[in-house]
Design a protein around this nucleic acid. Sequence first.
RNA 1: GGAGAGAUGGCCGAGUGGUCGAAGGCGCACGCCUGGAAAGUGUGUAAAUGCCGAAAGCGUUUCAUGGGUUCGAAUCCCAUUCUCUCCGCCA
Length: 422
Amino acid sequence: MLQIQLIREQSQFVIDQLKIKNFNAENIVSQILEIDTKRRSIQKQTDDIQGEQKKIAREIGQIFKDGKHDLANPLKEKTASLKETAKILNIDLSKLEEEQQSLLVTLPNIPHISVKPGKTAEDNEIIDQFGDTSTNDSLLPHWELTQKYDIIDFDLGSKITGAGFPVYKGKGAKLQRALIQYFLDKASENGYLEVQVPYLVNEASAYATGQLPDKEGQMYHAQIDNLYLIPTAEVPVTNIYRDIILKADELPTKNCAYSACFRREAGSYGKDVRGLNRLHQFDKVEIVQITKPEDSYATLEQMRDYVTTIIKELDLPCRVLRLCGGDISFTSALTYDMEVFSKGQHRWLEVSSVSNFETFQTTRLKLRFKDKDGKTQLAHSLNGSALALPRILASILENNQTPEGIKIPEVLQKYTGFSIIN
RNA sequence: GGAGAGAUGGCCGAGUGGUCGAAGGCGCACGCCUGGAAAGUGUGUAAAUGCCGAAAGCGUUUCAUGGGUUCGAAUCCCAUUCUCUCCGCCA
């Protein structure tokens, strides 16, 4: 959520920057400003009236103390009418606050100045690429390989639950577990504190990280208890810091977490959902950092670097994209996507996305820190996948297929306990 | 799931209707003391929001959350959430 002060003080800048995200904010901003003016004038009025009420109440207190009870009655009458006015004004006030809030949450985050305009994923800028992307038509896509070696059973998952909930079997399950452990170990080595977090979150948490209200339909909802299944560990991990004021020396905080992730993926279809490409339940290791504002972009680079290093170690061909305005997410100011090349499908698959949210999440989270002058200010939040399993698994299977079987990347062998799937 | 007790500032803890945003302590910050430190000692120590160009200052709100009673609520009433104890159930 954008801060009202920013909109108030630099409305034109907000409007201009949001154009880069192809978002026309003109109307919303002017509505917000209009409501804001009204809101503040009403707040002033209620404040004054409530101050008056308090003053009279104190006077009555004094009168009772002095035992002059009969003097109290006219004063009581006076407050009665003040109370009535205050009540009406308070209703107006909360109505305006609500209105303002509901408009504010519809505005996306302002993109970083370096973000270039663009309409679609086609306009993203490739800033780095490594690894061998040579391929040929004899290489099988992973959904054929998983069947051939009987390591993932999509039909069985459909029977038990539905499409998008595969069953991993034997070496498939072990490879999955190996990847999780490998990712977590790497993150720990790099200073991320490992946490295990709930997979269901309440409304306040889903709201604070921005899943609500924007992505309501994308989350599974346990209605009886009004809890949401997490679409990513980002939600519970970031909410660790909800409503907190950190000390300056506690920053940056670095957390990593493995979790299953649940996404309804309403509206997806075709080749995008084939096999492991898009699932309703998948595994992911997430990294989250909270930093001082001045450090967040250096941290973003460091996180990007960290993710590409892991991909390199897995020996997967990879490219790094700096997202254009049109492709960057609602909540992000700057995002890098990492894609690995999948040789059986002859296409790039997104396996990670690292983003700087600046204060967009921390505003809602009320996540602040005391700077060295003792002033409280909003921290910046960043996160990234490190990494999401299914597509990594898909490209490991496709890229390492040989006539003898699927070769397990060197770094994973100590975790899997085997070096080939055959 | 049933019965009972509770929720107060960064932490502990006092406060059952009247200048209570809240005693006292711990912690923290700054100062004094000291050759330096400890001890001692003094001062300060919440957040949100509004008035204001900014600061200072002032107002309002906040004692789990949301309602209510009252001229006045941390204190009384109702609902919800959470914690603890006992019973039941259970990996």
